[in-house]
Amino acid sequence: MYAPEFEYHRAATVAEAIQLLSSNEDAKLIAGGHSLLPLLKLRLARPSVLVDIGRISELKGITISDGTVRIGALTTHWEIASSHDLEHACGIMAEAAGGIGDTQVRNRGTIGGNVVHADPASDWPTVLTALGAKFNIQGAGGSTRTVEPGDFFVGPLTTTMGEQEVLTSIEAPTLGHHQRAEYAKMAHPASGFAVVGAAVVVTVEGDVCTAARIAVGGLVPVPVRMTSVETALVGKALNQENIAEAASHASNDLQGEILGDFFASAEYRKAMAEVEIRHALFHATEVSHH
């Protein structure tokens, strides 16, 4: 619980942060510190230099315009959870943020740190995958690139981010009038992290589903799109039977590695993916569970 020695720099701008990353071998960014500090204290991470981006104002804030929600990487879970504008524009984000950890964690933890840390048990990767979000990244020399979740998450604690890159913001489409979205999470009773999380975004015309994006996380190294479930759902009336039928395709989409531990085995988690998808769809469409 005592971190090894490191040098500390506070960056005033993104450019300075990138410059500090480039000029120090083994340097690491620190945002809210809620994933990195535990690693330091357990001496599992030993960066020689920490570059604190916590006060860079250009990385903070939520803007909503032209059908796009743009959230600065440094925006805290609490800010996202308590944004009224966001609740209207893309309620699933506010809802997911409100279910992260506890008050202290939400007050400090940032959406950017969360996705870059790429913990399979995190909530944001799953939700952002279902939303079809985009990650805006800045690199050395002011270069920028934009990446979709599928090209961002590589595996547990690994992404395609370069060592000298900063995630600047995340963009997601606002939800239209006919769209419903929901995130259902089976939380670990100790950590509150997702054992299984299911995010659904469905478009409903009349009572028929015309489009669906569904992702699950928690049980997989990186979020998985549930394309079979989506296919089974599109064109169907969103009633209890059709939702249950569609959810039952979940295992088709879960052919890769499934995570398991002594608390929840892979087999259980796989079964729960179907249950959580069902719950999310029931809630999203207000179809009664029983």
């Binding site: 670990h188 100790a190 002594f262 608390f263």
Partner: peptide, 23 residues
């Protein structure tokens, strides 16, 4: 409902933090 120590067969404590041991 929630609490319980888990050791592996080699006596390593698997529930060694508040992330794993549910109070």
């Amino acid at each position: 409902l929630w609490e319980g120590v888990v050791y592996d067969d080699n006596g390593q404590l698997l529930t060694g933090s508040l992330l794993d041991y549910a109070v």
